[in-house]
Amino acid sequence: MFNKAATYSQMIKNEALRLGFMACGISKATFLEEEAPRLEKWLKNNHHGEMAYMENHFDKRLDPRLLVEGAKSVVSLTLNYFTDLKQQDASAPKISKYAYGTDYHSVIKDKLQALMAFIRENIGEVDGRCFVDSAPVLDKAWAKKSGLGWIGKNANLISKQVGSFFFLSELIIDLELAYDDPFPTDHCGSCTRCIDACPTNAIVAPYTIDGSRCISYLTIELKNEIPQEFKGKMDNWMFGCDVCQDVCPWNRFSTPHQEEQFKPKEELLEFNKAELVEMTDEVFKRVFKNSPVKRTKFSGLKRNIDFLQSSIIEV
């Protein structure tokens, strides 16, 4: 007997891999009961810092049917961004691996739209929306629910096969599909490497991040001055931070991505410390055009670099 849901699910997964996604899992669009009290507690503890938008659309974050009318399925996807390329000057302020190339929002959005077009062409009239880190969707919860991995002590989604250096995105659609089982077990065990290594003690308990202490937050989300308590604790990061992933044993399974658009500009890797410290707005616009780094604007990146420099001077 022809099982429509299973056939359609397999078609979608095959096309996702063809488009360059690393993995694809599918879960039923329903209310996230387990996540509701966790999210409420996290917000109550002010772990979102100045990210006031995290307080908005509480119900929508927990129920995709409020985002897409008639939603039946959440298609979760991962896209590899791991690279073994590094900035050549070890003393230069550092940029997180995910920000080396073209802004992932546009790269993934194009792939999601292509997947949506494939579904409509090959399955029929399907309604839905693409989500890339820009709407009230709990990406990690849905990825776990669709069997793509577990949420580690550093609050990142981790896969036994490939580690955690990947982006998450979703299609929420009004099509009934065959659903994957949630990822069954946590494989962090007694390991606390991420907790021990975090330079600002942002992992306040296993699986709990105080976002307002995270270097990624301090260098990207925070619009005001970086608090003085973090002087000398930023581990030389000027945009984002990879520490809790770099020390994770599961990332020994990470393999370099094959996405042309994520390849860094040579100039970015060749910057020495002095060039970054003295960087002009003109250089910023040229090197970081179409990059996630442009989100901080020149003034934000300069603030971060100056803060790192003042820490060195005082120490």
Rank of each mutant, 00 (worst) to 15 (best):
W150R: 06
D186S: 10
D133K: 09
A141C: 11
F183D: 03
S159T: 01
L138Q: 11
F183R: 04
E176D: 15
V162S: 12
P136Y: 03
D196E: 14
D196L: 13
L157F: 09
I173H: 06
A155R: 05
N156F: 15
V137A: 06
I158E: 04
C194T: 06
K145M: 14
G149F: 05
Y179W: 07
K144V: 12
S169Y: 00
G152W: 02
D174V: 11
F165G: 08
L171A: 05
S190G: 12
I151M: 11
T192I: 11
I151E: 09
T185V: 14
N154W: 02
I158Q: 01
G189E: 05
W150I: 01
S164M: 08
C191N: 10
F165Y: 15
P184F: 05
L148P: 04
A141I: 12
D180M: 09
G149L: 00
A135E: 11
E176F: 04
D174Y: 03
H187K: 13
F167M: 09
L175C: 11
L175S: 07
A143G: 15
S146K: 03
G147L: 08
C194V: 07
V162E: 12
S164T: 01
D181M: 15
P136I: 03
P136M: 10
D139K: 00
K140R: 15
A155Q: 03
N154M: 11
D186E: 10
L138V: 01
I151L: 12
G149V: 02
D174P: 07
D180L: 01
I172N: 07
E170W: 08
P182K: 01
D196F: 13
F167P: 01
G163D: 04
E176S: 11
W150Q: 02
K160Q: 13
L171C: 10
E170M: 04
Q161Y: 14
L168K: 03
